[in-house]
Computed example of a mutant assay.
Amino acid sequence: MGAFLGAALQQDAATMQELANADYIQHSPFIPNGLDPFIGLLPVLKVHGTMAENIRMFKDGDYVFMHNIWRNAAPFGADEMVSFDIIRVDENGKVAEHWDAMTPLATETASGRTQTDGPAKITDYISAESYAQHNHRADNKTHPRRRKHPSPPAGAKNQSNRDGAPFSLPKGKGTQDGRSPCPASCLGHLGSSQAVA
């Protein structure tokens, strides 16, 4: 996935075409579906000198998660932006789908940490005892994830995904029975995740 990001930053459309499906699904509010609209954005990024600094990249099955700082990022809404991208690759290893969330880089934060500092490799799963907040609008004392949540009432159903199946992790990850204590949108539990070089 680093090769795809690098090809985009180098304006290398031929390599991008080798690494992604022509009809890939795009969830970014800035770019329509398909590879051609993304390639069409490259000259705009070049004019602005837009560059990305990859902070961390993780892979979990068919998904790659990237945390980047974008500089000269006026085409995305501010001079410096922080992004979190999720990319799904297909069975042939090509980019098939992309989601992102971008926010301006903050110089002051409620927690005292930046939006990107901290470990760049997964060494453990989320821990309520060692959670460090990186949302620039929240501090460690008031963020909802720091609060203890009550146990569900007896007989309550487990949270489930869209198909109705309970969220699950490999045995020993998350709760004692392997269920994740957070919904699918909680990306802290990456199951068999590994850092991507």
Rank of each mutant, 00 (worst) to 15 (best):
Ala52Asp: 00
Glu80Trp: 02
Met81Asp: 00
Pro119Phe: 01
Ser168Phe: 02
Gly155Met: 03
Glu97Thr: 01
Pro181Tyr: 02
Ser151Val: 05
Ser151Tyr: 04
Gln159Val: 06
Glu53Ala: 13
Glu97Trp: 01
Glu80Thr: 03
Ser160Cys: 09
His136Asp: 11
Val95Tyr: 00
Ala52Val: 07
Arg113Gln: 09
His136Leu: 03
Ala110Leu: 14
Tyr63Leu: 15
Cys186Gln: 06
Thr116Asp: 01
Ser192Gly: 09
Gly77Pro: 15
Ser192Arg: 14
Leu190Phe: 03
Ala73Ile: 06
Phe58Asp: 13
Ala184Asp: 10
Asp177Glu: 13
His136Cys: 10
Asp85Pro: 12
Ser127Met: 03
Ala128Ser: 11
Thr107Pro: 05
Leu187Ser: 05
Asp139Trp: 04
Asn72Gly: 12
Asn161Tyr: 04
Ala165Leu: 08
Pro181Gln: 06
Val82Tyr: 01
Met57Pro: 00
Arg179Asn: 08
Ala96Gly: 02
Ala106Asp: 04
Glu53His: 10
Lys148Cys: 04
Gly93His: 13
Asp100Glu: 15
Asp100Met: 13
Leu187Arg: 09
Arg146Ile: 04
Lys173Gln: 13
His67Val: 06
Lys173Met: 13
Arg162Asp: 10
Ala128Asn: 12
Arg162Trp: 05
Ala101Thr: 08
Gly188His: 05
Glu129Asn: 13
Thr175Ala: 08
Ala74Phe: 04
Arg113Tyr: 12
Ser193Val: 10
Asn158Asp: 12
Asp79Gly: 14
Glu53Trp: 06
Gly172Thr: 02
Ala156Glu: 05
Asp117Ala: 03
Gly174Asp: 03
Ala138Ser: 08
Lys148Glu: 10
Phe65Asp: 13
